[in-house]
């Protein structure tokens, strides 16, 4: 039972992490329908930037986080303006951006290695261990959950209360209609790329603090973000959150009785069943 509770806590903590990744990825994907795989190496870049500022240069962590957010937002916007925009203009069919994005992923991932060198980077912060009954967790775990809640609430407010937020929601609903009613879809696309990438910098820094950053950390990030979005239902940010938590919990609790050598597939089995049984996702915007 203690193990179950611990795994439950782990699942919720990881779920927050995946949900945050899902929010960033989902914002971009649901609005522009671009499978932005390079989201992964941008996460890596953000983590290494935070390490460079706060670890190597010794500035306060908050400066490091700010730097990471800035770099991620710039890279995200840059990839839209230089790559995806050019593809859109040349009338590329829907899955071309996905392949182009993979090309960008290869470039960015290796660029991290060239710029920052290989090997793991860590940043030591004072993290204490807490326990709640039999359940252990560290202060970084708490930060993961808190950062997710804060960002999710802020993002929700932004989307519902501001003009640009509503424009994003409109475009998520129906890009054609958004264009018809006079929304500047170019501007909205730039905003979601900047915002989605900026959000991804936060979980990136958390990984740096928790497990250390490595040049290939981005793959898991984009994959889990993507999975959270699909499980939750494309076009729904609430869905991305629910998807993130579901994947986190299943990945953790699923291994309660199953040997851990199956860890790599368990979330995929769930994903598989999920899509087969409920292809519209947990929360679906699909209207018939």
């Amino acid at each position: 039972m203690d193990l179950f509770l611990q795994l439950l806590a782990n699942g919720l903590i990881n779920g927050s992490h995946y949900a945050l990744l899902g929010l960033g990825f989902g914002l971009i994907f649901s609005t522009t329908r671009i499978v932005h795989f390079a989201y992964g190496p941008i996460v890596t870049f953000a983590a290494y930037t935070a390490w460079l500022i706060s670890g190597s240069m010794g500035l306060p962590l908050i400066v490091g986080i700010a730097g990471a957010v800035l770099v991620a937002a710039l890279l995200g916007t840059g990839s839209y303006l230089t790559l995806y925009r050019a593809l859109e203009r040349n009338g590329a069919p829907p899955l071309i951006p996905l392949i182009a994005s993979l090309g960008l992923t290869i470039v960015l991932e290796n660029l991290v290695g060239v710029l920052f060198g290989t090997g793991v980077r860590t940043l030591d912060v004072d993290s204490s261990v807490h326990f709640l009954g039999p359940v252990f967790f560290t202060s970084i775990h708490v930060w993961q959950v808190v950062s997710f809640v804060v960002i999710a609430v802020a993002l929700g407010a932004f989307l519902r209360r501001t003009r640009y937020g509503r424009a994003i929601l409109a475009m998520t609903d129906d890009p054609e209609m958004a264009r018809v009613i006079g929304i500047d879809t170019l501007k909205v696309s730039i905003i979601v790329f900047a915002l989605g990438s900026a959000i991804s910098a936060v979980p990136a820094v958390m990984v740096l603090l928790k497990d250390g950053a490595s040049t290939h950390m981005g793959f898991a990030a984009v994959f889990m973000g993507f999975v959270a979005v699909i499980v939750g239902g494309v076009g729904s940010l609430r869905g991305a959150i629910a998807g993130g938590y579901l994947v986190g919990l299943v990945e953790s609790l699923g291994l309660w009785q199953i040997p851990t050598e199956w860890q790599g597939s368990i979330s995929f089995v769930v994903l598989f069943l999920m899509i087969m049984l409920r292809p519209q996702g947990l929360f679906s915007m699909a209207r018939k």
Binding site: L7, N10, S214, H216, M217, T260, G264
Partner: peptide, 21 residues
């Protein structure tokens, strides 16, 4: 307990929790 870790794994909390248990 025998718990497995993927190469390049970032998250091994479950394995560790099982070992602790």
């Amino acid at each position: 307990a025998t718990e497995f870790v993927e190469l390049g794994a970032s998250n091994i909390d479950t394995q560790v929790a099982k070992i602790r248990a």
